[in-house]
Amino acid sequence: MVYRHQWIVIASGVVEPVLYLFGIGLGIGGLVGGVQLADGRFVSYAAYVGPALLASAAMNGAVFETIFNVFFKLNYAKTYEGILATPMGITEIALGEMLWALMRAALYAVAMLVIMAAMGLILSPLAILALPAALFISAAFSAAGLAGTSYLRTVQDFDIPMGLIVQPMFLFSGTFFPITAYPLPIQVFMHLTPLYHAVNLIRGLMTGILGWGQAWDFAYLAAFFVVFMWLATRQMERKLIK
């Protein structure tokens, strides 16, 4: 309901990945030509980076929503204390915030899919599954965001998740180039990041590569979701119920 008044914020979330797609996808795409996929095919750079941007948009939507907005509601507006005075409980609050993050992610994903389709960057009918996959990714990241927010104390603390976790992940999760470009230890580390799996899953779906790799991505993200959801509700309970 709040967002009746805030559609511009949401719109910016749609525009950002699209700008990246045009700026980097087409710009760098012009320099590097094509990228070789796991199955040996060569695809245009834009078609390579597009799915990764979609996955990142799902992550960003979820993380921004659950970190910034939830932080203020939790610490300043005391919104949740009002809600907890009603029959609602902590789980409903966490799920509600998550659902909202998912709606945002869905919007970003649909917009990206439509634009990529219009640009001819979708290489497989499986791409339609990228939408539920994006929702799933955003669920995983909103759980992490909720859990993380409850540890933040001041506005300055935002720099930690944003600068040290989200941004580096965005740059180093096989988003813009294959991770094989890096030395092995770094590759191992990248394999551990959730965004790598998110990117790999969406890229697989949009380019038509579906194998054990994607199943593993899915399993990883599912586990990630469960762990952080548990942590998030536990933390919010600690913060709100005294």
């Binding site: 309901m1 709040v2 008044h5 805030q6 507006a77 005391k78 919104t79 204390e81 009002g82 005075a85």
Partner: peptide, 14 residues
Amino acid sequence: LGVVPQIDNLDQEL
């Protein structure tokens, strides 16, 4: 129950 907390927690954005 109806609860009126010590500090107003109205939704400022609504």
